[in-house]
Amino acid sequence: MASTSSTAVGNGSPVVKWVLRLLVVGYLLMLVIWPTAYVVRHTFADGLTGIQEALADPDVVHALKLTVEVAVISVLINTVFGVGMSLLLVRYTFIGKRALSVLIDLPLSVSPVVVGLALILVYNGRFGWFGPWLEDHGLQVVFARPGMVMATCFVILPLVIREIVPVLEELGDDQEQAARSLGANGWQSFWRVTLPGIKWAVVYGVVLSLARALGEFGAIKVVAGNVGGDTQVATVLVQQKYQNFEQQTAYSVAFMLVFAAVLCLVVVALLRPKEGKER
């Protein structure tokens, strides 16, 4: 009964309602929808030939493979770290916890170029703090995969944690304590009680960070250099192709990246109602 209110401000006068509606649709249309749709149109201007030609270029194929490889490794590392860190932040108390929880959000507001610079200053093989020692022991970080993975991990670091922490807080530790009282050890209570409880938050965080990881540009560009067929990822390739006036290829690769991103979003959107039902 009375689930809809006729007086709540939003359902007010039809004029205001239509003005706001048109304003929002217009803003999103001009800012996001139309430009995005235009890229899709560009890509398929000549049917599938654009995509086919792009995929015939070995540099493109290599860049796409490299992007996926780096993204998947980074997301895996970051998920383990994120789940562990969330548990520590919510369930335990230790000195410096508050500072740590603030610092974890830092990557959200650090420019990707600064991220790249920071990693170079420490891991670069010539003058970095640890770089020369690591290279003497056979591990090249900068201008190689480890650096690219680190740059991506840096950028996506808070995403999983920000999803899990509120759910863990909401969940409480009653169930974990119940599991302990029934004789489960810490490991068992984590696998059988805690993890199922935060399952959807983890999945949501993973999908979001995957979308970000596939699209990372600035930090990777600084750390990886830009050697086509070697350390060039898809986003950097898009820039290079565009600037070399190979626009068709640039648009085709861009479309594939947009497609992956939108796919991630659709997956998340589909997961959301399920999450509501589960709880």
């Binding site: 235009y38 979001l208 979308a211 699209g215 540009f217 640039a250 648009y251 990246l257 991103a261």
Partner: peptide, 12 residues
């Protein structure tokens, strides 16, 4: 905009 690669956002 959050999920789209930034370079692609520029291109878009």
């Amino acid at each position: 905009p959050f999920a789209m690669p930034t370079i692609v956002a520029g291109l878009v």
